[in-house]
């Protein structure tokens, strides 16, 4: 029994233990239990980060969806009532602008022709239709000749002619032995709406 105890007595071995050189499989095993674990852990960390990222983008998506819904509701209210009215105003303003600016304006021509008739008693009839001007008179050829000469010097008329009126049946008030015919060169266009807005009260 004592012998056996002596046999199992611990002994010191200060020599470096000699191990066989590691085989390829030993190295793979070492790699698996060391670095591969790191790979797994890194993968897991990546998954956690990805989940966090997913949560963030989902929250963003939810916020954007909510904002879109609110905006859609607001715009729907606008579309339903205000936008159609605004479009109507826009269209109406455009139409009005064109109608206003393309419409005829005869007052300056009438005023000019009237200014040539110095004797208010002379019996003449002035007709303006489009770009055509006709002055009919029967009782004073000289008066008409005077009007004709003034119209010929005016920059607003061309083709001014004094002739016998052959359309007497169509003459207004059945006057007009003679007729001056002329073409208006440039019809006075109406003033632009922008100018009106700044100079007059449009609400009148």
């Amino acid at each position: 029994m004592k012998k056996t105890t002596a046999k199992h007595k611990k002994s010191f071995n200060l020599l470096k233990p000699e191990l066989p050189p590691p085989s390829a499989w030993d190295r793979i095993y070492d790699w698996i239990v060391t670095r591969a674990r790191v790979v797994v852990v890194v993968c897991e960390i990546l998954i956690v980060l990805a989940f966090i990222g997913k949560v963030i983008v989902d929250i963003q998506a939810k916020d954007i969806n909510q904002a879109l819904e609110e905006k859609s509701t607001t715009l729907a209210q606008f579309f339903g009532t205000i936008e159609s009215e605004l479009r109507d105003i826009q269209q109406r303003a455009g139409v009005y602008r064109n109608v206003w600016e393309f419409s005829n304006s005869f007052s300056s021509i009438l005023r000019e022709v009237q200014s040539y008739i110095t004797n208010p008693g002379v019996k003449v009839t002035i007709t303006i239709s489009g770009k055509n001007l006709t002055i009919r008179g029967d009782d004073n050829l000289q008066a008409l000749q005077l009007i004709e000469s003034q119209m010929k010097t005016s920059p607003n008329f061309k083709d001014v002619k004094l002739e016998l009126n052959t359309e007497s049946s169509e003459v207004v008030a059945e006057v007009g032995k003679y007729a001056i015919t002329a073409t208006i060169l440039e019809l006075d266009t109406r003033i632009k709406l922008d100018e009106i807005e700044t100079t007059t009260d449009i609400t009148q």
Binding site: S103, Q114, V172
Partner: peptide, 17 residues
């Protein structure tokens, strides 16, 4: 011609009565 409701004058005849 200055009225806001546009009256686009086509023909105008002025004569002594």
């Amino acid at each position: 011609e200055s009225m806001h409701r546009v009256v686009n004058i086509q023909t105008l005849t002025v004569g002594r009565r």
